[in-house]
């Protein structure tokens, strides 16, 4: 054993003790640098996420306050003379339907939909042949 150690000591350009020292220092340096990096990444991530969530909250609050402050848009004024509730606008084409039946159909649609007749626009009413 002693001979081997002696032979090693003679042949090596660095002593074994120094080689061990370099190896241990080497792994410690790698661990330290990467551990430092890990801590930095952790802090950085937390910082960035905090900034991002604060910005999100700020934007959210701003949007809420803007929507609260904003006045509801005024309805556009009707142009021209308003139609009576019982009247309907536009031209209506009737196909094989008399005016009385057409008036009944329009009244039913208005009643069923809950929309006054003056806000409905009928284009045509066509009788379907059986």
């Amino acid at each position: 054993m002693f001979n081997i150690i002696l032979a090693l000591a003679n042949k090596r350009d660095i002593p074994i003790g120094e080689a061990v020292n370099i190896s241990v220092t080497g792994i410690v340096v790698v661990m330290l640098v990467l551990a430092l990096l890990a801590v930095l990444v952790l802090l950085l991530s937390k910082g960035i996420r905090a900034v991002e969530s604060a910005a999100k909250k700020r934007n959210g609050k701003k949007a809420d306050s803007e929507s609260a402050e904003a006045k509801p848009a005024e309805p556009s004024k009707p142009v021209g003379t308003a139609l009576p509730e019982s009247a309907s606008a536009g031209d209506l084409d009737l196909y094989n339907v008399d005016e009385k039946t057409a008036a009944v159909i329009m009244a039913i649609v208005s009643n069923e939909s809950g929309i006054p007749l003056n806000r409905l626009l009928f284009k045509s009413i066509k009788a379907i042949e059986k």
Binding site: G26, I27, A35
Partner: peptide, 20 residues
Amino acid sequence: NPMSLLLGAAAQLGIYVAFM
């Protein structure tokens, strides 16, 4: 998962063992 960095460091063990 920054802890991964420590695994990347530990897996360099072979370098120093091979050096010895």
